[in-house]
Each structure stands twice: as structure tokens, then as C-alpha cells.
Simulated scan of single mutants.
Amino acid sequence: MKLSAELKALEARLGHEFSDPGLLVRAVTHSSMSSATRDDNQRLEFLGDRVLGLVMAQAVLDHDRAATEGQLAPRFNALVRKETCADVARQVDIGAVLKLGRSEMVSGGRRKQALLGDAMEAVIAAVYLDAGFDAAKAMILRLWGERVRRVEADARDAKTALQEWAQARGLQPPRYVEVARSGPDHAPQFTIEAQLDGQTPTQATAGSKRQAEQAVAKALLARIENG
């Protein structure tokens, strides 16, 4: 199989030339384009998630040899979560080559976080099947790069920190209320308000409820810490 110019360009961005180009084609084929003669990337996604997990588990261990399991777990989670995979997918522009059915194309599938994250995991599996674990590991560490080095700061869970702050003072846990949703279905924006006894309610907006909750917890923590 000969790859299109767009997929050859993706190969270059990934830093891996496929011996079996069909693996890359399958990795960027969404289920909306699957058929009896065309496999989608769902099985590859399942495998890629596990390969990524093993590489990142070793990476966080190697990065901080004195860290406890309790410190390592949130760092690991920050590196393998779907949002991070989607960010890396955007970095190498996987969205530009995704093979999507018409419905997904019309609804903005090339920009959807879930589709991008899934495709990135599928690409990892494709490299693993094409050239083995070492090749997949090298690509992952190259693409995740600085994220591994700064993960300690990024992995600080603001919601957990805010809840611990409240519990230490005998307060009820903070409450997170969705107060607004805007934007189209394929790119929604959620506004979440954090409510905590004795504090002025604080709001933040992001592309997912999880991100908005983390953002508003971080903002409220910063205000508390700054007096």
C-alpha cells in the first residue's frame, strides 16, 4: 500500500516510517468510516492506551526516583488522560488526516477531543505493531517530551487541593454547579461555578466540564492563598 502525501507528512511528524503503511491508515480511520472491507481504529486504540500507560509509568518513575506512589499516580494520570492525548494529536495534526464519515465530518470531528485522543492512541499501537515496543516508546517520549518534565506541576489536582483545604478547616466540600453552556454541540463551552462556605462563588469556562471544574478550583485556591 502506498500512503497519500498527507499521510507521508504525518509519518514525518511522528518520526516513524511504516513498514506496513496499512497500520497507519487503520489508525486514522474512525468507526464512522468502517465497512466490511475497511477496519477502523477502535481495536488499535485499546492496545495503544496500554502501550502508552506502560511507557508513561516508567517515565514518571525515572523522572523522580524519590517520589511515592501517591505522588506518581496523579502525574501518570495527567500524562495518559484523553485531554493530553488529544493535545499531542493536535501537535502532530492528526486531525488533518482523520478518515471520517459524513456525519462526523459535518459535526466537526477533526476537532473533537475524544476522536483526536483515540486516534493518537491508535497511532501508538500502529507503531508498536509495525516496529515493536522500543520504536513506540521512542515516539511517545519524543512527542510527550516536555510534558514529562513538567508533569509534577501540571498534575496538581486543584479540586483535590481545594477539598483538602476545606476539610482541614471543618468546612463542607466545595460544590460545582454548571451555570451555562454555549457553543455548538461539537465544540461546547461549559461555565462552572465553585461554591465554598465563607468564599465568594467563582466561575470559569472551558471546553469540558472537567476542565472547567479544575480551572475554577484553581482560581478559587489562588484567591484564597492570596488573601
Rank of each mutant, 00 (worst) to 15 (best):
V127F: 06
D39K: 01
R90K: 11
S34N: 07
G70I: 09
S103H: 01
V80F: 08
V92Y: 08
F18C: 01
D87L: 02
D20I: 05
V106R: 07
M120A: 14
E164V: 09
G132P: 03
R223V: 00
I224L: 12
L115W: 00
P201I: 02
K209H: 02
L116F: 06
D93G: 06
M33W: 14
D40E: 05
V148T: 10
R110S: 15
V127N: 03
K209M: 01
A131Q: 05
L14P: 13
R142W: 12
A119F: 11
I140R: 04
V92E: 07
L129W: 10
P21Y: 09
L44F: 14
G48D: 02
K82N: 13
E121V: 04
G227P: 04
A136K: 01
V148F: 04
D197A: 10
V51F: 07
A158E: 06
L100G: 11
R150K: 08
L171Q: 12
G117D: 08
A158K: 08
G53I: 14
R142Q: 15
Q91N: 04
E193K: 13
L98S: 11
L100D: 11
A125M: 10
L116Y: 02
T29Q: 02
K99G: 04
R90H: 07
D93C: 08
A155Q: 11
G145V: 02
T84Y: 04
I140A: 02
A212Y: 04
A126M: 00
T37C: 07
A9H: 10
R181N: 04
T68Y: 01
A66K: 14
A219V: 06
W165F: 08
D93E: 07
L221S: 13
R50M: 10
G70C: 08
L196R: 12
E121A: 08
W144M: 14
W165K: 01
L141P: 15
T200R: 09
R50I: 14
S35D: 10
R169N: 03
R26P: 01
A168S: 04
P188D: 02
A5Y: 01
A59K: 12
S107T: 15
V88M: 05
S208H: 03
Q172W: 07
R75P: 06
G108W: 12
R110C: 15
D197H: 05
D40L: 07
E225T: 05
E104L: 08
R142A: 11
F46E: 15
K159N: 13
A114V: 09
V97T: 11
Q203K: 11
A194V: 13
P74A: 11
A180T: 00
Q172K: 10
C85P: 12
R210S: 04
T84W: 01
K137L: 01
G22H: 07
G48L: 04
Q195C: 09
A73M: 04
Q163G: 03
L23S: 04
A126E: 00
E69I: 10
V25E: 03
A57E: 15
S35P: 14
G145R: 14
H16W: 09
A73S: 12
A125I: 06
E17Q: 03
G227H: 08
E6K: 03
A161P: 00
D62V: 09
G207R: 15
R43C: 14
Q113C: 13
D157M: 03
